[in-house]
Simulated assay, not measured.
Amino acid sequence: MTMIAGLGFTAPWLLLGLLGLPLLWILLRAVPPAPKKQIFPAVTLLLGLSDKDSQSDRTPWWLSLLRLLAVAAAILGFAGPVLNPTRDTAGSGPLVLVLDGSWAGATNWQETGKQISSRLEEAGRANRPVALLQLTAPKALQFQAAATWQQQLPGLLPRPWQPSADQIDAATAHLAASDQRFDSLWFSDGLAYAGQQDLTEALSSHGAVTVISSGLPILGLLPPVAKDGALEISLLRSAPGGPTLGAQSVEVLARGRDPGGTHRTLTQVTAQFEPGATSTSLQLALPAELRARIERFELPDQRSAGAVALSDDSLRRREVALISSGAPDEGLALLSSLHYL
């Protein structure tokens, strides 16, 4: 990229067209040759008539100037101007974008997509070939133009699981199959998992590695468990605390269908993380009828698979009846201790 007074150009060779503007000015201001005079007898019939519309023999200077400015603006536009481009992050050579692409990054996926788009724009201005490697769905490295990946970016979605050992081995094999040098930008979801160190070493063997992470805590909701006649709900968070993550309150919603069949929030509770704690739990006591309607628990501010816990029949308290056919009389059967329990 060429820099001129703080303004960068992705196609600076197009600026050579500005040198042709003086020639264009001369052509626009050139006086056409004088017309040849030829006497025509019938013209005498037009003597004495005046023409209200007059036409200049040359283009007005202000109109020529406007036309030249329009051409100059078109040349500058096609040259790809960029105001104060960041030359230190553009780099050169091939670039690999590595994404965890797991459930932990689903909540901030839109922000991650904007960062990826920004990096692709920088790579495009620097004419760097780019390859993308999503660890939850690893594929062979394909270096393409940044504009090509920009078109495929809307279809890039996180997966509801973390990278498994087999997927990490597959990603490492794809990296080992490439014999060229490249830099790596790793968009991390913020969770640690097995195989990260091996993958880091594989990326470092090809070039510089830069890890990008939001640093925000990641919350997870464990499946509810029936305990002592109540529901025990457990939550986890990725960061134990610190100056910005001491005590933390998290809302938990119990969703299900009301008697009319409408899906709604049946109850809402608050879980409290103590300073320095990475886990917490709470007890939720509900009437049997309301408890049987709960279908799922979820964290309203977290949109990921880890922020949803589905309930099943093990959480419901069902009424059970035992009927004994030993008594011949129906009235005696209804009075039997084995009839109802």
Rank of each mutant, 00 (worst) to 15 (best):
I212N: 06
S214I: 01
W103A: 06
T278I: 07
R58S: 14
R237F: 00
A230H: 09
W186C: 13
Q38M: 07
M1I: 12
G229F: 05
S279N: 12
V252I: 04
G6I: 06
A173T: 05
S304Q: 03
Q167T: 08
E274Y: 07
Q142S: 15
P328M: 12
T265M: 09
D312S: 14
W186V: 02
E289Q: 12
P223R: 05
A307I: 00
P85L: 11
T148N: 12
T107F: 00
F78C: 15
P138S: 10
L203Y: 00
G105S: 15
E274H: 03
A72Q: 04
L310D: 08
Q115H: 04
S249C: 03
S311V: 00
I212G: 12
G48S: 03
H206Y: 01
T267C: 10
Q180F: 08
L199G: 06
P94L: 08
A72Y: 01
K114I: 11
Q115G: 14
L153A: 05
L282E: 05
A140F: 09
G6Y: 07
A165D: 12
G48W: 01
G113N: 12
P22T: 01
A104P: 01
L153G: 10
A34S: 11
V250D: 06
Q110N: 10
L135D: 02
L231H: 04
F40V: 11
K37Y: 15
S118A: 08
D169C: 14
A5P: 07
G155S: 14
G20L: 06
E295G: 10
F297N: 05
R318H: 14
W149E: 13
Q152K: 06
M3R: 07
G155H: 08
I218A: 10
K227G: 09
